[in-house]
Design a protein around this nucleic acid. Structure first.
Lengths: 153, 153
DNA sequence: TTTAATGCAAAAGATTTGCAACATG
DNA sequence: CATGTTGCAAATCTTTTGCATTAAA
């Protein structure tokens, strides 16, 4: 699950470039925090990143890790798993379905895809484990938002 | 986005059945909380459910809504969007990829699927809006867990 | 030297828990 | 009536913020 050295180097280059282009300072903390995520294959949460970075840089504070990770996400250098800065939401629709989430107004719409259901994803992932469920999350701009740029309630 | 009356009734029946079979009490609060999720097409979060249920039942407390929603999830009557009871996690892998999450040990593995990438999901969702990104989340049991039932670190 | 970024501590926000009162089966 | 469930209030846990200090460019 460790990332290849060449790939880590490539990611660090991307980071340097993004700092230069955005005019942000390349501080020790930011480098170590990004390096930690860049070399982890295991999608760590904020606290895990903090714990690991502290081994090399014992004074780094938790709030800097929070600030830095969200800043990296803004720069497009990292992505988040799950809904970023959103609470868990509940759904009583138990049928097979997928979600389209509007990045503008936040509304989530259900949709179905026979084509996807017929794809044998179970076979694709059989080297990892046995599949129980699958769920496609699509992000984009919904028509309510493209048409009149106002958010529905 | 409102759910069809027949479908709501069907869901309320499922609820009644699950209570009977699990020996749980069918209290007013539980009925109203489940009804609220069952009739909402918009995937509300805990606080939204609480706010809406309070209109009909002003004394219901927020902690009951929390307890009830997670209990409904345990019974399999509702699902959660996003990582249930988990914090946001970060990923520096910017290439197109998908995730397999082990429901036993919690580890998330990356995988690719050309077949999925070649599916024209953008067309499937064009009646909803314009797609920007898509991400498949597969859940199941990974081999580390099926083989020896111990969780890797 | 100028400005942005950090660390600290406190605040704010979200979620959970213990327990007495209450409602359901 | 016995037991599981609720509401309240407090506790806990997570995340954010204000501000003086520090470090990059």
């Amino acid at each position: 699950m460790a990332i290849d050295e060449t790939e880590i180097a490539r990611r660090m280059d991307l980071f340097a470039k993004a700092c230069r282009e955005s005019g942000a300072k390349r501080t020790h903390q930011r480098m170590e925090i990004f390096r930690e995520v860049a070399q982890s294959g295991d999608h760590p949460d904020v606290e895990t990143v903090h714990r690991r970075v502290r081994k090399r840089m014992p004074t780094v504070s938790l709030d800097t890790v929070y600030r830095t990770l969200w800043w990296l996400k803004e720069l497009g250098l990292v992505n988040t798993l799950g809904p970023p800065r959103e609470r868990t939401r509940f759904d009583a629709n138990l049928s097979d379905h997928h979600h389209f989430m509007c990045t503008h107004c936040g509304v989530t719409w259900d949709f179905n895809s026979d084509a996807l259901n017929h794809l044998s994803i179970a076979e694709t992932v059989q080297s990892i484990g046995s599949m129980e469920t699958m769920h496609l999350e699509v992000k984009g701009i919904c028509h309510n938002c493209t048409v009149d740029k106002s958010s529905p309630t």
